[in-house]
Amino acid sequence: MTVIFGLAAVIAFLGAIGVVLSQRTIYSAMSLVLNMVALAVLFLLLDAQFLAAVQIIVYAGAVMVLFVFIIALLSPGAEERVRPLELRLLLGGLGAVIFTLLVGRLTLNGITIGPHGRMHGELGPFAPTLVNAHGQVQTLGEQLFTTYLLPFEVTSLMLLVAAVGAVYLSRRRRVAA
């Protein structure tokens, strides 16, 4: 368990670094795919099988194909050069390290985990063993269509708006002024 977590975490982090530091846009995209596949493994470790599948299908599949398609279509000619010792990159890295240390300090300080390695307060009814016995996808679906029906409907509305917006933005139009 710990070994798989360590491997997947290192791969995910290296993928994230690769997205920022790659010289060419296509390498950034490939690093992002690596990051997302490693994240899917982590989701499996967290008993979220459905979301691991969705992560692979929607992110590593659909979204990244769209990215690669646009990169191939535009083929940005003059690549910007990212030199590793550039000042803005150093400052960005410094900020990233400080934020990570702050969150790590809060987490290890036990603010989010109680003395017995458990959360403060009551645990919810969805213990992983119960959920897996009932069916993980089934439980998620039941919750999605009962308790969280309103957010689900609003999401479908948002998808409609995004589709209409994308069609509007990318249609061919006469240039006015």
């Binding site: 982090f13 994230a16 982590l42 967290l46 960005g92 990233a96 990570t100 790590g104 987490t107 989010t112």
Partner: peptide, 18 residues
């Protein structure tokens, strides 16, 4: 592993923000 997941999440978020 709980802190590990959260720290990885924070590290990825800050790399993305940078």
């Amino acid at each position: 592993l709980f802190p590990g997941f959260l720290i990885l999440s924070a590290a990825m978020f800050s790399v993305g923000a940078a």
